[in-house]
């Protein structure tokens, strides 16, 4: 997706770092096994976080060893396939596909060529994933269509545009029982936060190209960092409150690190402009 959801490494315990990395590598492996060799390119931090959230709390951390996709000579500890990883893998394929389709439509016939080529490559994987999670597939399609309609009409409401992406992400977790309610609330505000962070990140670029930007539409072309930050912080606070009500077993400390430390730091980097450098760093070439 975007890679905004990261842990804050200096405050991670070694065991939590191992857990994070094994989940990340496990998601990569799961994508490869389910969707073939190009699927690991969809791997990202955001869906790693989703997988961590979706895991059953009773399930412990028991990594197996597997070959790294980027460097097959290396064997790394990784989480074996589990329902949480599989769901996260299916959903990353679906979201990536619809985002590509969106790109094809937005960019026109020439500029949209790379997106078109990629989406062709991804089509078989998408059809498989859509069969497995048809509800999520429908939700993503509807929410993104709603979002582009709002963008076309230049919607001045920050909340309304962010709401579409927030509901999209909210539907990534099954909505059953108390746990479902906690996850729904957490993911809603995560989606809202990601959408706003991305909008702030694109503010300058959109201004130059004359594209719609929700932050500019709400606060004027220069934006209003103080107000935007506050409203994003309010979403972070809601996420923290939801997190405390759920049971996440051995993944609690890692999730707390991401929500209480990682996200605020990313937020700060987005506002002070350093995020551009951070997000470019290649992340799947570990320890070369």
């Amino acid at each position: 997706m975007f890679g905004y959801v990261r842990p804050f490494r200096p405050e991670l315990k070694c065991k939590d770092f191992d857990l994070y990395r094994a989940t990340y590598c496990g998601l990569c492996r799961c994508l490869r096994r389910r969707y073939g060799l190009i699927a690991p390119m969809l791997l990202n931090f955001d869906f790693t976080f989703l997988a961590l959230l979706l895991w059953e709390p009773e399930e412990g951390f028991t990594p197996c060893r597997g070959r790294c996709h980027a460097n097959p000579l290396r064997k790394l500890p990784m989480c074996p396939d589990s329902p949480a990883l599989e769901l996260a893998a299916d959903e990353s394929v679906i979201l990536a596909w619809w985002k590509l389709r969106d790109g094809v439509q937005d960019e026109g016939p020439v500029k949209g060529l790379p997106a078109r080529a990629l989406s062709l490559l991804l089509r078989p994987a998408y059809r498989k994933a859509a069969r497995r999670c048809s509800a999520f597939d429908g939700m993503v399609r509807d929410c993104l269509a709603e979002l582009s309609a709002l963008e076309r009409e230049g919607c001045p409401s920050l909340d309304r545009t962010a709401d579409t992406f927030a509901r999209l992400l909210q539907s990534a977790a099954p909505r059953e029982g108390e746990r479902g309610r906690v996850l729904a609330q957490l993911l809603y505000h995560l989606g809202r936060w990601i959408y706003l962070a991305d909008a702030r990140d694109d503010l300058e670029e959109d201004r130059q190209s004359g594209r719609y930007n929700p932050v500019a539409a709400r606060y004027g072309p220069a934006g209003d960092d103080g107000a935007l930050r506050l409203t994003m912080d309010n979403s972070l606070a809601q996420m923290g409150a939801a997190l405390q009500l759920g049971d996440f077993g051995c993944r609690t400390a890692l999730l707390e690190n991401i929500v209480y430390l990682g996200l605020p730091l990313v937020e700060r980097a987005v506002f002070d402009g350093t995020w551009r450098h951070i997000k470019k760093q290649k992340i799947w070439r570990n320890d070369t």
Partner: peptide
Amino acid sequence: GTMGGYRPAGYTTGMDAMDCCTTMMCLNC
């Protein structure tokens, strides 16, 4: 904002004095 509400011990923000290089290293997980 995030200053109200509950935070578990150890997660009270203390990262204010971080320069951008450190931020980069920290998030580059």
